[in-house]
Design a binder for these strands. Sequence first.
RNA 1: GUGGUUGUAGCUCAGUUGGUUAGAGCGCCUGAUUGUGGUUCAGGAGGUCGUCGGUUCGAGACCGAUCUUCCACCCCA
Length: 455
Amino acid sequence: MAQKPSIPKGTRDFNPEEVAKRNYIFNTIKSKFERFGFMPIETPSFENSDTLMGKYGEEGDRLIFKILNSGDYLSKADQKAYDDKDSNKLTSSISEKALRYDLTVPFARYVVQHQNEIEFPFKRYQMQPVWRADRPQKGRFREFYQCDADVVGSNSLWQEVELVQLYDEVFTALKLEGATIKINNRKILSGIAEVIGASDKLIDFTVALDKLDKIGEEKVKEEMLSKGISPDGIEKLQPLFTLSGDFGTQVESLNSILSTSEEGKKGIEELQFINTAISELGLKSAILQLDVTLARGLNYYTGAIFEVSAPNVAMGSIGGGGRYDDLTGIFGMKNMSGVGISFGLDRIYLVLEELELFPETITKSTEVLFINFGEKEALYSLKAIKTLRENGINAELYPDNAKMKKQMNYANKRNIPFVIIVGEQEVENNLFALKNMITGEQQNVNLEQVVKKFS
RNA sequence: GUGGUUGUAGCUCAGUUGGUUAGAGCGCCUGAUUGUGGUUCAGGAGGUCGUCGGUUCGAGACCGAUCUUCCACCCCA
């Protein structure tokens, strides 16, 4: 026990069953992405540090895994930062690469770098692991997969509409019915901040507002006060705390709060456009819900913000996304609006597991195992197995001439539904004793009948 | 990064105020059954009690550090 090897905190091994289940989710998302016209790309697992650093806020920088330079990195270290024990400063002089923190920023880098080869609007999807130096919890890992679909090079709100449909399609296909797609708009948040005179404190304001359903109205107000938002301004927020009802009712209240903010009104318009279109088109099983307190996420969203939560399970969000007007701007490419959504594979896995929504069929592998009785019989079996495999049947031979009990037990443990027993008699008569491991029934058949049985 | 929590056999867990050789169930192996698995019966293997250090005549138990698990912050998929 003590000497057993281990893996780093927040990482996991996956056994065959888990991989099968993960692939099921993976493949479902992938096929829907392609159905909506997205093409796959991949990017390196690590990027130059300056590509990533500063894109996710101060907290984000802390959570980025930095890669130590190769060779004698200390000789090139910033001596002053070292003496001052200034870790932040020292880091940039001993580390110039970092593990990918999400898929959106590397995608922006990709678009800028390959802008001359890309046909815009560019619709890409990407399903790769990302890393965060976070402290693990349930549903929070240091290595996990994101599945992103983004469109750059189009300002059209139809993209937002399609992305909502895409969420609906994927969760419906996964039988995860009743997923809530929460939607908000950064312009509304900016508008509110403007109205209460806290435009310069937008991030602090939204972070506090985001906690409303978690810590309650009073604590949110406290946090806003402590961040320097005026009591007058907080007073003006009152209608926001009691906002309820359907989309239309909430929009009405927002209209009155934001009557003096051009930006805020623009946000409401966008929201209404999306909602109207979705109402018209209909959703299969998901629910689109306006949530003005939704402010999670990355500092780069400028329009719509999405977040998906699973039904009946205590789990953080299983997806998120939004519109970012200027992400490529940081890499020197202006006027390139993007919008995208992300699926959290690992959390979706936990949710499907908890709700027992995985289909039973996804773990099956070998359909028939041939019992090994010795050299002559094994060769006879392998000839048959070759034919079965050519017919698309998963078949295998037990490798050793072990006791029959052991071989049968092996089939049992692996849930192999059929066993073929080939002994001296069967070889002589050119037959196969086919046994159903579930019912226990057994019959002698020829090769043709075996093929037919599994086809 | 802050505060708390967890770790005993492959798995799930007992283990009294510190006291002989650390237990159970399940699983695993062998046999009853040399051409028939799942059921049953009989037997067997398997643990430096997460790790390192300390207190003690004596530590699975007490103390410290460290790693890991989970939780609350922070933040997020």
